[in-house]
């Protein structure tokens, strides 16, 4: 196995150009999602899905709302019209403890030599269990051919020593691709830099198991400028399997109870008939 590869998406650098969305669609030959107008700032994509593996979120905030936490020094003097615009390019997180992978009953979802989580399209039978097992709502089932699809971390490009299409096309290096170990150091440094410049509210999201114990850390992690909910990210995600054991215990107890009830009923009937 080579070193773990991943993304560090620094939202403080994102300008919302959507080049990543386009590059991803182009390289992976994904269809357009239609021309709908949502009215949600510049985001007409909505959410990640089977045909959308990169999604740029746009958040408009009025300053009183933003001020408490985040505004850099000197801003809010009229030049920003009392508004702030946050953008974030969302993607599959390639979790260490991946809900989809652990839920997959066919073994179609595997961990690759790049430590990414990959769906083998020739094995997936479209049971849909990964869809409900993902705490981030990333993986989705295709309507037409019934198989689950998501970001592959450009497995084909990585195999040829290339950078994933989205990171390659990002004009501001908001999406940085590389060894997760190195990206983590870069992210910590960037966070310190932002904090030194007075950007309050800046935080890393999921860079390691300490930051996000529920997933064991993400191979595609983020630097956010506000709380995760603002970007439609869950604040404390957890791999469902971590709670499954408790559920199995109760299933076992209930099953045993059912069996004893059946036995008691049968014995009762026999004793009556013997009498």
């Amino acid at each position: 196995m080579t070193a773990a590869k991943g993304f560090f998406t620094d939202t403080s650098l994102c300008i919302g150009c959507k080049a990543c969305e386009v590059a991803c669609k182009q390289w992976n030959q994904l269809p357009a999602d239609g021309l709908h107008f949502t009215g949600n700032s510049y985001d007409n994509t909505g959410h990640l899905g089977a045909s959308t593996w990169r999604h740029v979120a746009f958040v408009e905030q009025t300053l009183p709302e933003a001020l408490g936490s985040i505004e850099p020094q000197g801003a809010g003097n009229g030049s920003s019209f009392g508004m702030r615009w946050l953008m974030e390019s969302d993607v599959c997180k390639h979790c260490q403890r991946a809900g989809c992978l652990e839920a997959c009953p066919t073994g179609a979802i595997v961990r690759t030599e790049f430590d990414s989580v990959y769906v083998q399209p020739d094995v997936c039978n479209g049971c849909g269990y990964c869809v409900v097992a993902c705490p981030f709502g990333v993986i989705d089932r295709r309507d037409d051919d019934g198989r689950a699809w998501k970001c592959t971390l450009c497995y084909d490009r990585l195999s040829d020593g290339m950078t994933p299409a989205c990171a390659k096309h990002c004009p501001t290096e908001s999406i940085q691709f590389g060894d997760v170990e190195e990206l983590r150091i870069r992210a910590e440094r960037r966070l310190e830099e932002l904090q030194a410049r007075g950007v309050r509210g800046a935080q890393l999201y999921g860079q390691d198991a300490r930051n996000q114990p529920g997933t064991g850390g993400l191979n595609a992690f983020f630097l956010l400028l506000d709380r995760p909910e603002v970007y439609n990210l869950p604040p404390d995600p957890v791999v469902p399997t971590a709670k499954g054991r408790e559920s199995w215990t109760f299933a076992g107890l209930a099953a045993a109870g059912m069996f004893f009830t059946a036995m008691a009923g049968a014995l009762l009937a026999r004793n009556r008939s013997v009498r």
Partner: peptide, 10 residues
């Protein structure tokens, strides 16, 4: 906050 009230999960 939510993101325009859109679902976070599939």
């Amino acid at each position: 906050p939510t993101y325009y009230g859109l679902p976070v999960l599939q």
